[in-house]
Design a binder for these strands. Structure first.
Lengths: 262, 262
DNA sequence: AAACGGGGTTTCAAATAATGGAACTGCGTT
DNA sequence: AACGCAGTTCCATTATTTGAAACCCCGTTT
């Protein structure tokens, strides 16, 4: 199921992931039936996680849920190691100028994690959007990032994709995707042609550091009811400019200190 | 420093917390100087956390930061075990009717964690607000929850407060706070009389389950420049009504199954 | 009323993983 | 060429984790 197995800590995190995957409060026996661990082991791992307030356990119902302490840890993560705080004003600007939905995402392993969003019409909902994950191989932001990933990392990531066919435009194999990635590199930006969700299209560009490391991606998303890929494409220069500005800020703020002693 | 010490997992989480507490990328030696663990141990714990993508380690700079995987875990936590998704429409309504800032918070150990917010004037910023933590003893939401906590839990929580005097209205000892909590129970809601931040006042009510368990709290916050406690108080019936509606929804959605077999 | 049985919790000797002092490596400095 | 610092690895010792089995609690069946 899960990959590496760093001793007890790894096991505990597997259990945590297991709880998360249910997406609802779970009982001990729910977990026992799914889990690879024997009763006593699972029991002790759950206890440890609960002690640490990473899980919470309702004494009455006997249910385990993810602890809100995670929310506060994530707040710190979001604040200190996502691009969101840095990119904020640029996304605001992009949103104002385009009037369309704007996403900021980063790559985690084989998945895309959305870290910020602007939605023209309705006020954005907090976590309901930030923290959301999506597949890398069939989203605009995902493909934009994969296109510029070093070979070894790309291979690793591709090996882990599920290749689920969300729509009939979804590229569901490695060869098709590798061709697409080459096209993206040639073109300089990525399309999402309803590959993840029918009716949803987007253009996306990567955010890359000076040395070419990929930091994240931004996209402008819309629906086929409102617009077309051709008109979305008009935003690409603006999008690219924004990505560059964000990258520049990242250089300044996050790594001002490549050679500092203290 | 940290309290309980559940074996290796506990140690790993201490290290994680340590990284988080810096609030910026840290080097191995930064951590080594703060940490209680010997070099080799700390090193291995960091490796494990990095393998698990709970931390991320930049090979070039040698810096550790919190991993964005935390953000996605927190998304699940927020979605499945915070009140935010359930409370959302009610907060919208409250915000519309009052035109003031609205907070939804939950208690985690000795701290208040804000899980949602509405801000009349400016569009809300994602994590910059959700996930934020505050002290329980000098915030409206914190006091509203403490007031209805069972004795044993209250004692435990009070023992862990820092009693920092943020303003000169801050209650900085247990006796003062216990009196205040009694007053809150008598009155049915809590004030924040600039106890955490000068110029910031609020009224808050707890969200309690049918059986009296405290689930969270909501508050209406404003500034002394715009309004007074007396006028804020006019919102209390509305606030209380909202809390009751949220509590009712929680009964329906979160525990529909006190006696279910499957 | 006694036997049953499904969660959940605890025990304890054996198996495994964590520990940390010390030695080592790589690299920029004196 | 020697030094010093940050980070990494070694390995015998030590402490923690393991999990089969026994147990407990409590509501249900006979």
């Amino acid at each position: 199921m899960e990959s590496k197995m760093d001793g007890t800590v790894g096991k505990a995190l597997n259990v945590l992931e297991e709880v998360a995957s249910f997406g609802r409060p779970v009982r001990f026996s729910d977990l026992l039936s799914t889990s690879a661990y024997p009763k006593a082991t699972l029991y002790r791992l759950l206890q440890t996680l609960t002690n640490q307030r990473i899980l919470s356990h309702d004494a009455d119902s006997g249910m385990y849920t993810l602890g809100i302490r995670l929310v506060s840890l994530a707040h710190d993560a979001w604040r200190t190691s996502s691009l969101a705080p840095i990119a904020r004003p640029y996304l605001d600007d992009l949103s104002a100028k385009t009037g369309e939905t704007v996403h900021l995402a980063q790559l985690d392993h084989a998945q895309v994690i959305y870290v910020d969003k602007r939605n023209a019409s309705q006020p954005l909902a907090m976590f309901s959007e930030a923290g959301k994950v999506g597949p890398a191989y069939c989203t605009g932001v995902g493909k934009a990032m994969l296109a510029y990933l070093p070979d070894d990392q790309l291979a690793e990531v591709l090996a882990q994709q599920s290749w689920h066919r969300f729509t009939n435009a979804t590229m569901n194999n490695e060869t098709a995707l590798r061709d697409e990635l080459a096209a993206i590199r040639a073109r300089g930006f990525a399309y999402d042609r309803e590959e993840h969700e029918i009716g949803i299209i987007c253009v996306a560009v990567p955010i890359r550091s000076e040395r070419g490391r990929i930091l994240g991606a931004i996209s402008i998303t819309s629906s086929t009811l409102r617009t077309s890929l051709d008109s979305l494409e008009e935003f690409v220069p603006l999008l690219r400019g924004t990505a560059e500005k964000i990258a520049a800020q990242v250089q300044n703020w996050r790594f001002p200190d490549t050679n500092t002693t203290a």
